[in-house]
Amino acid sequence: MSGPFSGFWVTLRQMLPGRRVTTQYPEEKRVKPPRFHGRHVLNRYPDGMEKCIGCELCAGVCPARCIYVRGKDNPADAPVSPGERFGFVYEINMLRCIFCGLCVEACPTEAITMTHLFEMSVTNRQDAIYTRTELLMESDGSVPHPQPDSILIDKGELLQADGWMRATAPSGRAAYEGIPAWTPTLGAGLRPPEKGQSASRPSPVTRQEPDTSEWRDVNDEIDNAETDHRTGDGRRATGDDSNG
C-alpha cells in the first residue's frame, strides 16, 4: 500500500503485541547502564577503614559546589582512614548536585563513587543534604539511605558502583586491559572489570613497558612549556581563586 493512506498500516501495525517500549516504573525497572550516575556513596576498604582522606579535591572540582568536606587528623590510637587525615565532615547537597561524576574522577583514593539509585525525593530541603551518616558505607558493607524500603527504593542498586573507575583506570591503556587496578571495597570486594574488558586474561600479566622513546620527548616539551607558563604568569602561581 502506498500513497496518502500508507500511514494507516503503519499505525495499525504498532498495535501488534510486543511493540510496546514503555516500562511500568516502578514495578518494572530497567537495567541501568553500568556507568549510570546515581547517588553517591563513601566507600570503605575491606578492613573497615574509610577510603576518604579528607583532601577536599571532590569539593574543589565540584562545578555545582554542592560538596562540603572538612578533614581532620586521624586519632593516633584509632585511625579512621589509612591516610594522615579523614573526612570528618562530609556533606553533599543533592538538590544542587548535577551528577556529573567529577568528584568520583577527582578522588585519589576511590572513596566517593556513584551508585545506581536515583530515587531521592524529599519533602523538605534540609533532608536533601546528605551527611556522613547517609553517605558513608556501614561497617558491614551495606549503604544507608534516608528513604525507607519501598517499591521505589531497591537497596540493591546502592551496591552497584558506577563504572567510571573500572572503565578508565588505569589510564585507559590497552596494555592494562583486564587488570583490575582499583582498590577493593568493603562488601563488594574487588569489583570485576566492566563488560567488554576481558578479565579472564592469563595472569600474571607482566607489565610491558611501551616504547617510550618518542613520546617522552613530547612530555618533556610539555613540562618545559608548563614551567615557562608558571614562571611567566605570576598570578597563577599565587592563586587568585583560593576559596574554590
Binding site: 495499525l12 498495535m15 510496546r20 514503555t22
Partner: peptide, 10 residues
C-alpha cells in the same frame, strides 16, 4: 489507550 498503543506506549 488506542492512540497510545499506536505509538508504542501504554
Amino acid at each position: 489507550r488506542v492512540v497510545a498503543f499506536m505509538q508504542n506506549r501504554v
